[in-house]
Simulated scan of single mutants.
Amino acid sequence: MPDSLQNPANSALVLFSGGQDSATCLAWALTRFGRVETVGFDYGQRHAVEMEARLAVREGMAGVMPGVADRLGPDHIVDLTGYGRIAESALTADRAIEMDARGLPTTFVPGRNLVFLTCAAALADRRGVEVLVGGMCETDYSGYPDCRRDTIDAMEVVLSLGLDKPVVIETPLMALTKANTWALAHELGGQPLTDLIVEASHTCYRGDREHRQAWGYGCGDCPACELRAVGHAEWAARP
């Protein structure tokens, strides 16, 4: 674990779903900022079990990262169920998980990260938090255009203009593969953190908490599980 705090006077708001990526981002933020808060979004997702996973991961951080756990501040929940009904997808309705006519997976929720970042920026403004932290990644992702570097850079500009102040969006996983994300978690918190991510975080689109895999709980065949499984296997095979 890094032994020096890079931004002791700064604060961060982590967009926190309770999945592998946001759990790693939370650990990353705790090693870099003096105060860290989290925000989750209820958009009517079918895999609502992730809302429970959020709490388990947050609570577990105190045990696996005791040196920085005192920096973890309040958690916030934003009700976006109305948006979820508008932006219907296989994550919010009973639809097959497949590719659509545009070549995008039906799990794509139109504008999800744009909405999340806008709400997070508004919350951060009222909370006096300087930096937003998100787990977006364009290297190992499910084909979502709102995860791309260009999209996040554009949102940074738009939010800064709209709020008339600098808005910083940190995306520590943007250029990492899933294997590298596992490696980063291990670098940040060792085996205790990776064990917490395996046991408590949730990624599976089907909300499966019954089947335990080497990399955690999930159905094993949805796109999210496949990405997580391949990344874990690649990381575990490294010398």
Rank of each mutant, 00 (worst) to 15 (best):
V57N: 00
R58H: 06
E59F: 01
G60W: 03
A62S: 13
V64K: 06
G67M: 10
D70Q: 14
G73A: 03
G73L: 02
G73Y: 00
H76G: 11
L80Y: 09
T81Y: 08
G82K: 03
G82A: 12
Y83L: 14
Y83C: 06
Y83S: 09
G84S: 06
A87E: 09
A87C: 13
E88V: 15
E88H: 12
A90N: 10
L91V: 08
T92L: 10
D94Y: 13
R95Q: 14
A96E: 15
A96I: 12
I97Y: 05
E98H: 14
M99S: 13
A101S: 14
R102F: 10
G103H: 04
L104M: 13
L104S: 07
L104W: 11
T106P: 12
T107H: 10
P110C: 01
N113L: 11
F116H: 04
L117G: 08
T118P: 02
C119Y: 11
L123V: 05
L123Q: 04
A124S: 06
A124I: 07
R126P: 00
R127E: 11
R127V: 00
V129G: 00
E130P: 00
L132D: 02
L132E: 04
G134V: 10
M136I: 10
C137G: 05
C137M: 04
E138M: 08
T139E: 08
D140K: 01
S142I: 09
G143M: 11
P145Y: 10
D146L: 07
D146M: 07
D146K: 04
R148N: 02
I152L: 14
D153Q: 12
A154C: 06
M155I: 11
E156M: 13
S160I: 05
S160W: 06
L161E: 13
L161V: 08
L163D: 06
